[in-house]
Design a protein around this nucleic acid. Structure first.
Length: 385
RNA sequence: AUAAGAUAUAGAUAUU
């Protein structure tokens, strides 16, 4: 059972959930019974790859067996439901868990809170944090971080800072995630002085800024046009012994892209590779967008084709970038063929994709096509903005 | 199955 469980976990983490699921079925045929670890592992793995129906089936299998789901099993499924926008079902499961007499822990609670926040229901998340005490679980730093992040995303920095005070009253120490989150919030509203002073405070309190902290700061400096400030921070971070990662480099690449310093951007791409890091789809999207906007559509398409060779899967943003570019160049036929292509790959166009297409159609005054797109949006439940 | 088999929070890209 232990060996099977480990294998299942390995395949899940490698994205081969089909193999993992087959192993799960196979072990029962071999006469081995999955234990609570096995169930949690397979359920979580399936959830993380969007196979919610299979995950729920496993959960039912478990209920039918002599095993009762434990906290981790519930947490795995709750977390999965939250990440696939099914927060309502997650809340139901949470209630079921209480009925079954299973005591929620900090992980249950922070998972649910993260899901609620993602769904823009921050007040409910905050309520949950208040209620946890009575349910036998006192709030920890992760729960506060989740809430602080939600306030930061809404631009309600005062509320975020209030939470910091509340933590202090409870005797909870902010950690590097807490600080990085608020620093990023300050960066996001363009308040770099506050971000800098909070970073100093962080250091004074004995915490070292990490790669995320620095990357937020670098991004903020880039976005206000302070390239030198950004590069200074990069140097500081290296001096502090922190290694920039793909995100750090991608931030810089995007900054060069936005300034149409494509040569420098591509030099940084080489630098990423030279450091043994692997550029990801966001790195490439940035470059593809810059090439498109710079009028180098052929180069952009070449890079797009190269993604397949690098075994990187284009995402909605990649296609939308290209579609938008073709729409702006009045090459609607190509734009629509890319739309077909992305759909054929199982990618679902979003509002931004449709907005781009509408922009292209507008020039041609093709009401019929516009109506057709509207219908398609409606059918897939995509609300116009 | 050992501090050691499973679960939660922060940073980058596309439309206007």
């Amino acid at each position: 059972t232990y060996v099977y469980t480990s294998l299942i976990e390995g395949f899940c983490k490698a994205g081969e959930t089909d193999t993992a699921y087959n192993l799960y079925l196979q072990m029962r045929n071999v006469g081995l019974s999955p234990d609570e670890f096995t169930f949690s592992t397979i359920i979580y793995g399936l959830c993380m790859h969007g196979k919610m129906d299979l995950a729920q089936e496993c959960f039912h299998n478990m209920s039918e067996s002599s095993l009762k789901p434990n906290v981790v099993t519930y947490n795995s499924l709750i977390c999965g439901l939250c990440q696939t926008q099914e927060v309502g079902k997650a809340v139901e499961l949470f209630e079921e868990m209480l009925r079954e007499g299973c005591t929620p822990d900090v992980v249950t609670c922070s998972s649910l809170m993260a899901g609620l926040c993602e769904f823009d229901n921050v007040s409910e998340a905050s309520k949950l944090l208040g209620e946890m005490e009575n349910k036998g679980c006192s709030p920890n730093v992760v729960m506060y971080n989740t809430l602080i992040c939600a306030y930061c995303r809404k631009g309600e920095l005062n509320r975020a800072c209030d939470m910091l005070d509340e933590m202090a009253e409870r005797g909870l120490e902010p950690d590097e995630v807490t600080y990085s989150t608020i620093i990023d919030g300050m960066c996001e509203v363009g308040d770099l002085p506050s971000a800098h002073s909070l970073m100093s405070k962080m250091i004074d309190s004995g915490l070292a800024p990490n790669v995320v902290t620095y990357t937020s700061m670098i991004d903020a400096h880039c976005k206000v046009g302070d390239r030198n400030g950004a590069l200074r921070l990069l140097e500081n971070m290296k001096k502090a012994g922190i290694t920039p990662d793909v995100v750090t480099y991608t931030v810089l690449i995007d900054s060069f892209c936005k300034d149409y310093e494509l040569e420098t951007a591509f030099m940084m791409l080489d630098e990423i590779r030279a450091k043994g890091l692997v550029p990801n789809i966001i790195t490439y999207n940035s470059l593809i967008d810059a090439l498109c906007k710079f009028g180098e559509t052929d180069e952009a398409l070449r890079l797009f084709e190269n993604l397949k060779i690098a075994s990187i899967t284009p995402d909605v943003v990649t296609y939308t970038t290209l579609i938008d570019s073709f729409c702006k160049k009045d090459k609607l036929e190509i734009a629509f063929s890319m739309l077909d292509e992305m759909r054929a790959k199982g990618l679902v166009p979003n509002v931004i994709t449709y907005n781009s297409l509408f922009g292209g159609i507008r020039k041609r005054q093709d009401m019929e096509k516009a109506q057709l797109l509207m219908d398609q949006m409606q059918r897939q439940g995509c609300a116009p903005d």
